[in-house]
């Protein structure tokens, strides 16, 4: 049981609004963890906090990487968080629509390569080799995700489901230890959802990447996740295995509302 991410007492205020209220969460290596909750519960805010898009008001976010000291990553910039090994996707797809599919994935390799301006202009041996390696690595990832036939197409022209998968491919190119997926199945048809389900499991099993996902598709969540965290109004209201969550009265209350004497 090796913890890789530990969030303690995380708070995020927007002016007078407390979007996240003393939130705790932890992820163990090799786990698929789901974060669920009604709309507006603060799930995406939580993602933005731990990936550096927002700077949390209070609390601690620690990452534990094998062979490295524990690190506190509050207040790091998004690109630094990605460099540390946490890559994300977005709820509303944010690909680079004017770039090809392969180029999109190659952007993911940016933080793992080092060529500078001089390298670009003079194209020394090292840079040529690096560039070749970037292309090959990216293509391998596209093959793993099953997008290789779109290699040279513009990302913006891809079918919706393929765009979602391309976002995952791009995130994987950064060699993360933890993949954060924000509603990966949103807008997908049942067939695409099933494919995504399989893909997420493969990523965990073959690549050894742990996964934290926000998702509204309960069938997907219950089938995939090892553990589930439930949020409402910026607080954690429950956590546990899918079975525990299904029967948790607090969760049922949050989703369906309370019975009142009318």
């Amino acid at each position: 049981m090796e913890t890789i991410l530990e969030v303690k007492n995380l708070c995020m205020d927007f002016g007078g609004l407390r979007a996240l209220d003393r939130l705790d969460l932890d992820i163990i290596k090799g786990e698929i963890v789901a974060l669920i909750g009604p709309n507006g519960a603060g799930k995406t805010t939580f993602f933005n906090c731990i990936t550096g898009i927002y700077n949390p008001t209070d609390g601690d976010i620690h990452i534990f990487r094998t062979g490295k000291k524990p690190e506190r990553i509050n207040g790091l910039k998004p690109n630094q968080v990605t460099e540390k090994g946490m890559a994300r996707t977005f709820q509303n797809i944010r690909l680079f629509p004017g770039m090809t599919v392969l180029e999109n994935v190659m952007i993911g390799r940016h933080c793992r390569t080092a060529s500078g301006i001089a390298g670009a202009v003079f194209r020394g041996k090292r840079n040529v080799a690096e560039e070749k390696q970037v292309v090959e690595y990216s293509y391998t990832i596209l093959k793993k995700i099953g997008l290789e036939r779109y290699v040279n197409d513009l990302a913006g022209n891809l079918p919706y489901g393929a765009q979602r998968r391309l976002e995952i491919a791009r995130a994987m190119a950064t060699e993360p230890f933890l993949l954060l997926l924000d509603e990966p199945a949103a807008g997908m048809n049942p067939h695409e959802t099933k494919e995504l389900d399989r893909l997420i499991e493969t990523i965990r099993d073959r690549e050894g990447i742990s996964i934290l996902l926000i998702e509204h598709d309960m069938k997907l969540v219950m089938r995939l996740s090892d553990r589930i965290f439930v949020m409402d109004y910026g607080r954690r209201i429950a956590r546990g295995t899918p079975d525990e969550i299904k029967n948790n009265p607090a969760v049922i209350k949050a989703y369906l509302g309370e019975e009142t004497d009318a």
Partner: peptide, 10 residues
């Protein structure tokens, strides 16, 4: 193309 995604990709 996308500044936020660009940062999130490192």
């Amino acid at each position: 193309e996308d500044e936020i995604a660009c940062q999130a990709m490192g």
